[in-house]
Design a protein around this nucleic acid. Structure first.
Length: 423
RNA sequence: GGAGGAAUGGCAGAGUGGUCGAAUGCGGCAGUCUUGAAAACUGUUGAGGGUCACACCUCCGGGGGUUCGAAUCCCUCUUCCUCCGCCA
């Protein structure tokens, strides 16, 4: 969530910047300002009352000690009115503070100046493109047919066991999946990210910390019995490692990587564009997460983009990078780059990575701070990105590397797979 | 599942009704010494709100209660530890 102080000091700038998301934040921002003022007024009054009653209590203490019980009893009688006052004021204060929080949660992050104006994915800005799109035979198949032909992914079996969107990977398909995970983790470790294994279920506070709750509650699977949520991305458990932490400046940069399955309800539409591996309820992903000093975070974001680029280059997949426009930008993000791989057989781009800087938006919810040079605590910046989401990488490999003799495995993966072709 | 114990500042750990926001150690920061570093020594150092700055207020796992006054007493929830049972 946004920082109150920022809203107080740069109200107009924030409202203007949020127009990039095609929303009029003015009513919400004004409401925040009004509630904040009311909260502070109540606080001041309550503080004065409490100060008075604290003072009296101390007097009573000293009077008792010096044996003047009678005088003490006289003062005692004066405290009851103060007590009642502070109780009612405290209740009003709590209620106002709660209202204030609720309005604050409804305001999305302020987009970075470089974020283009726009309302949908049409308006995203392509900033980079690399790799040649292969010319396939006329009988080139989409990945779901290749998966069937070579018997490496069984979608129907997943339906039997669980339901739609939970595929079963078989034989070389399963092996390739495992190879990709190992390869990604190795690349990330090489680049200085520390590998972590984290829980796949998180509590409410964690979902809240990274912004999945309460805004997008419908997207996560909820285990009602224990009130836990299946993670939609490793971002949630990994970033929440730092919830309620106060760091030293020399702790930066913090770079973590984690492989986890990801679970998403996304009760979306059916059709060609969600066929096969394009959209699933459960999929695997390797994530990178960074916690940075505010002055370093955009340099870190660039570094993450270069890192993902290098991986795609090694995999020899044709890809492009988009800078998301305001309308497509996630609620909590200030700047996001999406990576898309070209799916030759489907003749469209598939998102395989999303790299974002959240600035202080998550840190404010997480209470993730560091001590600055002057010993004051300030909010850190959080970032994360996929490196990478497995299903669409797999789809890209299957489709782009298909030959009449089978699927050719990208060279970097051969040591991990133990085979050169799927046939 | 049964029986006990515990939760305090960045960390460790004292404190069992009245200047306790809290001893002490470690860590952090600043300085002395040193060519530099380490060590040693000296000083400093909890978080949040509020204020131009003070004052002042809140916070000792969460919530509620007793009391003029609670880290300290009571209730409740959560978490952790030890022992027993069960299980991987």
């Amino acid at each position: 969530m946004l920082q109150l102080q920022a809203i107080r000091e740069q109200k107009e700038e924030i409202i203007n910047a949020l127009q990039k998301r095609s929303i009029d934040a003015a009513p919400l921002v004004e409401k925040v300002v009004a509630l904040d003022e009311r909260r502070r007024a109540l606080q001041t009054r309550l503080d004065a009352t409490l100060a008075e009653s604290n003072k009296l209590s101390k007097e009573i203490g000293t009077l008792y000690k010096s044996g003047k019980a009678q005088e003490a009893n006289v003062i005692k009688e004066r405290t009851s009115a103060l007590k009642e006052d502070s109780k009612t004021m405290g209740e009003a204060l709590n209620q106002t503070a709660e209202e204030l929080q609720e309005v604050l949660y409804q305001i999305p992050n302020v987009p970075h100046p470089s974020v283009p104006l726009g309302t949908s994915e049409e308006d995203n800005e392509e900033v980079f493109r690399e790799g040649e799109i292969p010319t396939l035979e006329t009988d080139a198949l989409p990945h779901w047919e290749l998966a069937k032909k070579y018997d490496i992914i069984d979608f129907e079996l997943g339906v039997k066991i669980t339901g739609a969107g939970f595929p079963v990977y078989k034989g070389k398909g399963a092996r390739l999946q495992r190879a990709l995970i190992s390869y990604f983790l190795d690349k990330n470790t090489e680049a200085g990210y520390t590998e972590m294994q984290v829980p796949h279920l998180v509590n409410e506070a964690s979902g809240f910390g990274t912004g999945q709750l309460p805004d997008k509650e419908g997207q996560m699977y909820h285990v009602v019995e224990e009130d836990l949520y299946l993670i939609p991305t490793a971002e949630v458990p990994v970033t929440n490692i730092f919830r309620n932490e106060l760091l030293n400046p020399n702790d930066f940069p913090i770079c973590y990587t984690a492989y986890t399955p990801c679970f998403r309800r996304e009760a979306g539409s059916y059709g060609a564009h969600v066929r096969g591996l394009n959209r699933l309820h459960q999929f695997d992903k390797v994530e990178i997460v960074r916690v940075e000093h505010p002055e370093e975070s955009y340099k870190a974001l660039d570094g993450m983009v270069e890192h993902v680029k290098a991986i795609l280059r090694e995999l020899q997949l044709p890809f492009r990078i988009l800078r998301l426009c305001g309308g497509d930008l996630g609620f909590t993000s200030a700047l996001t780059y999406d990576f898309e791989v070209f799916s030759t057989a489907q003749e469209r781009w598939l998102e395989i990575s999303s790299v974002s800087n959240f600035e202080t938006y998550q840190a404010n919810r997480l209470k993730l701070r560091y001590k600055d040079e002057n010993g004051k605590s300030r909010l850190a910046h959080t970032l994360n990105g996929s490196s990478l989401a497995l299903p669409r990488v797999l789809a890209g490999i299957l489709e782009n590397f298909q030959t009449p003799d089978g699927i050719k495995i990208p060279e970097v993966l051969v040591p991990y797979c133990g085979f050169t072709h799927i046939d």
